[in-house]
């Protein structure tokens, strides 16, 4: 009698164990692949957010803001006048943000939702400290990732020294 080969029970047992292992490993591979591809897109969003915040914060922290007024280029367009004499225009459309020489063109799956510029004032105990804020919000949402990838700039000032 030929004693080579495997029995049916051995084969069935082996195939079922191997298939369970392969299925679980495939799940892990899919998870790692998703993490890899997601990190590329999300990293780009975060880099752009970092650049946007850096440009805006540097402009508002470097020099004192003297005044601002809206301009007619789009629904959200403001000219900011700084103490060094420079005037920087912030223009936000549905898919692009420009501020002075900086341009941020959004990808197709991102959009800007209701940008605002608002003033806040509080009663202050201290005449030398801040009592007012100019709040510039430019929320950017992405179709695939939750969270705000835009900018939230708060310019703090003393209304006794500056009138905006």
């Amino acid at each position: 009698m030929n004693k080579k080969g495997f029995t049916l029970v051995e084969l069935i047992t082996t195939f079922s164990l191997v298939s369970v292992i392969v299925i679980l490993l495939m799940n892990l591979l899919v998870l790692i692949k998703n993490i890899y591809s997601e990190s590329n897109v999300k990293t780009n969003l975060l880099i752009n957010q970092g650049n946007l915040n850096k440009v805006l914060n540097e402009a508002f922290k470097k020099d004192n803001l003297i005044s601002y007024k809206s301009c007619n280029e789009s629904d959200f367009c403001y000219d900011f006048n700084f103490s060094d004499g420079s005037i920087k225009r912030l223009n936000v459309t549905k898919d692009k943000i420009t501020f002075d020489n900086y341009v941020y063109k959004l990808s197709e799956d991102s959009s800007i939702i209701n940008p605002t510029v608002e003033k806040e004032y509080t009663l202050s105990n201290d005449l030398n400290s801040y009592d007012s804020m100019l709040v510039i919000k430019i929320p950017i949402k992405n179709k695939f990732y939750s969270g705000n990838f835009g900018a939230n700039i708060i310019y703090q000032y003393n209304s006794n020294k500056i009138s905006l």
Binding site: L46, N53, N128, S129, I154
Partner: peptide, 26 residues
């Protein structure tokens, strides 16, 4: 990996810079 995206975000760090700026005058 997913939690790390919530730590030291861009807006969070700039918020704390604003807070520090305010503290220095108090």
């Amino acid at each position: 990996y997913y939690e790390s995206y919530k730590y030291n975000t861009v807006t969070g760090l700039y918020s704390l810079i604003d807070i520090e700026e305010f503290f220095e005058l108090d």
